[in-house]
Design a protein around this nucleic acid. Structure first.
Length: 472
RNA sequence: GGCGCUAUCGUCUAACGGUUAGGACAGAGCCCUCUCAAGGCUUAAAUACGAGUUCGAUUCUCGUUAGCGCUACCA
């Protein structure tokens, strides 16, 4: 079992492409197969190094990996050989029509364009003569024109697909500059790399008939196919950077503080479901559950708006993963996030783990740690305006000072001891415990809301607590 | 224009031809509570439209409509 993900480096890693990669990967891992990354870079004009870098950047962040890697531009000889073999068999022909000249009256009102008149019927002798004379040509596939012939293939998702060959145009295999087209290069590589299942976007569903024709003409067996429903914007239009901005790039989610596993989980739920109502799933669970039966056929909308560029369900899933994953796995991610946000390397691991564990239950992304969680990792933080209001009630600050004095005398700085001390103080001064609690949270964390305040005390640590209470 | 694919709550989706059409997110309300989340409970919300087949249609067939894809010497 061998599958491939074949992006072309003409833009950043699109979330739809990321999902295609993930489904390929899941399928491979589920069946113990091989995952191949193939860079489809036969369109010289549109390829950029920057795009290639961003694709790798995105894939690296997803963290799934792959087993083999190829680049089509290294394999052009293979593509040309296979195209020529098809030509030798008479299943392709040279079309000397100049580029663009034919495009004017193609398609549209008077039916589909199928081939350029005169070229298909050129005698081998004349074709050879003109080619020898140096006249440029594109090599076109000679699609069968006999009435009633059709092309079929099996699709894991869409079932048996059939098309009359009369509806398929004589597509190009080789361009006049000698470069293979996408169809040629892709099929040649799929054959050569012994790809068994092609999993890709539904936008290729109608191209697949051409590919089947190429596979047959090249004397190979066509792989099985699985076409995935497309991801669209809320208005139903396909996601494009120009129209929808950064939401279409996976790096946006990375930069928003998403956990790779949570994001993978989210993407999987767009157009696929495990049939048992599960939603939050780990990578191993996804591998175990992934089957084509669960793949939907209708396009899925990524739910975002200008005010809120992140799909709410993605955010929810992320917070679920954030609070349920092993702290030991989360901690390094938090640490990295803090470091990139300019924090000093945080405390020793035990204390750090404890802090992360306490505050993560209120957070939904990694970015929350250096922002909302700032006071847990740094002594330089602002008291939020809403938090300030909790400190303003008459007597609140004095109570905190008093509390600080009492905590200083505590033998063991534990949650139960702190709570007892705080409640005792409230009782003696005839104030509601909530007053002190809320004020303490504000003074210790700078935030008006957050975890249980007694957790905050221990997470911040005695020395800092005393200091912050004193300065309240 | 031609060919094809698709259509269930706002969104993601579930439902051997028989269900009060289920779940999740987002929304509303209640409980819990030191705040905010989480969690629990409750609530509102959908089978695009029209025919046909059938005792019975979200499910099968046809048509209409809409969306999307392909229709390049792009991928």
């Amino acid at each position: 079992m061998r599958v491939r993900f074949a992006p072309s480096p003409t833009g950043y890693l699109h979330i739809g492409s990321a999902r295609t990669f993930i489904f390929n990967w899941l399928y491979a891992r589920h069946h113990g197969g091989t995952m191949i990354l193939r860079i489809d870079d036969t369109d010289l004009e549109r390829n950029t190094q920057q795009s290639l870098d961003s694709i790798f950047e995105g894939l690296k962040w997803l963290g799934l990996g792959w087993d083999e890697q190829y680049r089509q531009s290294d394999r052009l000889d293979l593509h040309r050989q296979m195209a020529n073999a098809i030509f030798e068999k008479g299943k392709a022909y040279r079309d000397f029509t100049p580029a663009h000249a034919a495009g004017d009256d193609k398609g549209h009102s008077d039916g589909p364009w199928l081939f350029n008149a005169g070229m298909r019927e050129l005698s081998p002798e004349e074709s050879d003569r003109r080619a020898a004379a140096g006249e440029p040509f594109v090599l076109r596939f000679r699609v069968p024109r006999e009435a009633g012939t059709s092309v079929s293939f099996e699709d894991h998702v869409f079932g048996t697909q059939t098309r009359q060959s009369a509806d398929i145009e004589d597509f190009a295999l080789l361009r006049s500059n000698g470069m293979p087209t996408y169809h040629m290069a892709s099929c040649a590589d799929d054959l050569d790399l012994k790809i068994t299942d092609i999993i890709r976007g539904q936008d290729h569903l109608s191209n697949t008939f051409k590919h089947v024709l190429i596979f047959e003409a090249a004397g190979g067996n066509a792989p099985k196919f699985a076409h995935l429903p497309l991801l669209t914007a809320p208005d139903g239009a396909k996601l494009s950077k120009r129209k929808h901005g950064p939401v279409v790039s996976v790096t946006t989610y990375r930069d928003a503080g998403f956990l790779p596993a949570a994001y993978v989980n989210f993407l999987c739920l767009l157009g696929w479901n495990p049939k048992d109502n599960r939603e939050q799933m780990s990578i191993p669970e996804l591998i175990e559950a992934f089957k084509f039966e669960g793949v939907n056929r209708a396009n899925a909308v990524v739910n975002f708006s200008e005010e809120d560029p992140i799909d709410p369900k993605a955010l929810w899933l992320n917070s679920q993963h954030l609070r349920t994953m092993a702290v030991s796995e989360l901690a390094p991610l938090v640490k990295a996030q803090l470091i990139t946000s300019g924090f000093e390397i945080p405390d020793d691991d035990a204390v750090f783990l404890q802090k992360v564990d306490i505050i993560r239950s209120r957070f939904s992304t990694l970015v929350d740690f250096p922002t909302r969680g700032r006071a847990y990792f740094s002594d330089h933080f602002e008291i939020q305006p809403e938090a300030m209001e909790k400190l303003n009630p008459p007597g609140a600050r004095e109570l905190l000072h008093e509390l600080g004095e009492r905590l200083l005398l505590l033998e063991e700085f534990s949650e139960t001891n702190i709570e007892a001390e705080l409640r005792k103080l409230a009782m003696e001064r005839q104030v509601k415990a909530g007053l002190i609690i809320n004020a303490a949270r504000a003074a210790l964390s700078g935030q008006p809301v957050g975890p249980s305040v007694f957790h905050v005390f221990t997470a911040v640590g005695r020395q800092r607590v005393l200091h912050r209470l004193r300065n309240a």
